[in-house]
Nucleic acid binder design. Structure first.
Lengths: 222, 222
DNA sequence: ATTGCCTTTGCGGGAACATGCAAGGGTTTG
DNA sequence: CAAACCCTTGCATGTTCCCGCAAAGGCAAT
């Protein structure tokens, strides 16, 4: 079993719950930190002393602390950690439910497991640790299904995403068209942007542009 | 100290963290449930057997279970519980950060304490229990200030949230107005809805309705 | 009752969005 | 080469949104 585990979780009670749970699994050394930066520091230190952590269990969202912290999300922590210690196992433990977002964690950072914060997480965290230790991936059963169906999912190209992103930032259709023209994107006229929106609204079954962006955010595309 | 405490919390690990914490305070009987309905049932039963709970510690948001549950939020649980056992002490333990919402819990249901899920919650839950036991109110220090200066705050009322929610679900302004009229909400004309949107766009510094909803989602209001 | 203030509402005109239609240009196919 | 096709674009029309203005109602102070 893992010997040295790092937990990044900013809810104190949840952190102790995790720590207790890990002790029951006979993991001798469990370190709990409340800030992403602290997690990265501890990891660096451990690597330098040649006693690296075997496993990171991390939340995704951390409350702001307004103290000049550099890393503010679990995702940023994971990205930074993969730089200095690519071999570490990572399990994400979060309330995140957008399959697109979760999928991108597996794709972009090769995380080893994902456990949702819910009624079943007690057992799931055990299984996730076990599976990860044995070199396999773990995903909450409730998510596996939606994750699979997300694979053969609607393909949005870069321009689709860009339109959604700009819409969500308050740009009007005409402004988006202008931006596209400046960048020499294809189909950059206002009319073409509108065509694209019709297509996107069909895909997302959205009635209005606002609805569309809400859906896209909900599913983690932007 | 309290003898019999009920915990309603749907994150498994957080629930065990709480339970462990309460044991350390020498509270002999701690019951943890994952559903609001279960909490109400247990309370009813305990009252009928003349061994009522002294204290409820409850989360506010519970994941849907699609099983014909009646109570879906901690707020509904609190309201129902106050009906059958007005004297029970209640501490809310939640990630909720909207001071307006929190204030309304104290005002509408006379809850006895509020502890935010954050880095300090380990100590705060202890203090909250102690204060509550001695008949005083407890509010997280970090919240006390903003609760007092709740005026110049980013304050959204229920109707604001409802408008944002309906917008994100693809309703047009006129449809929202109609819905508001059906429910006899105040300021339910189309023009008033638009006024509300102007206010909201100012608050969120949003240029378009889409931008507004994106901001509201990003900051966790819907 | 009068005055003053605030909220709510309807109206109107202009801006932004939605969408069908057809012209122009490029590519593929026979 | 020409016919068929698709993609892009502009134009036109209707809908929805935006916002200033003023009338109407409620409420409090005098």
């Amino acid at each position: 079993m893992f010997k040295k585990v790092l937990v990044a979780e900013d809810h104190g009670l949840t952190g102790t719950g995790l720590k207790e749970r890990l002790s029951l699994l006979q993991i001798p050394e469990v370190t709990v930190v409340h800030y992403c930066d602290d997690a990265l520091l501890k990891s660096k230190g451990a690597v330098q002393q040649n006693q690296p952590f075997d496993l990171l269990i991390t939340d995704l969202s951390f409350k702001n602390s307004y103290k000049g912290r550099r890393l503010t999300t679990g995702e940023a922590l994971i990205a930074a950690l993969r730089e200095i210690q690519p071999s570490i196992k990572i399990i994400v433990y979060s309330v995140e439910h957008r399959v697109g977002k979760i999928k991108s964690l597996f794709d972009s950072y090769a995380i080893n497991g994902f456990v949702g914060k819910d009624r079943e997480d007690l057992n799931e965290i055990n299984k996730a640790i076990q599976e990860t230790f044995e070199g396999r991936q773990y995903i909450s059963p409730s998510l596996q299904q939606s994750l699979r169906s997300a694979e053969n999912q609607l393909e949005l190209d870069t321009y689709d995403i860009e339109v959604l992103r700009l819409l969500s930032k308050g740009f009007k259709q005409e402004e988006i068209a202008k931006k596209f023209q400046e960048k020499n994107y294809p189909a950059s006229s206002l009319r073409s942007i509108q065509d694209r929106l019709v297509k996107l609204k069909t895909i997302f079954e959205a009635k209005t542009p606002t609805h569309l962006v809400a859906q896209a955010m909900e599913r983690g595309f932007i």
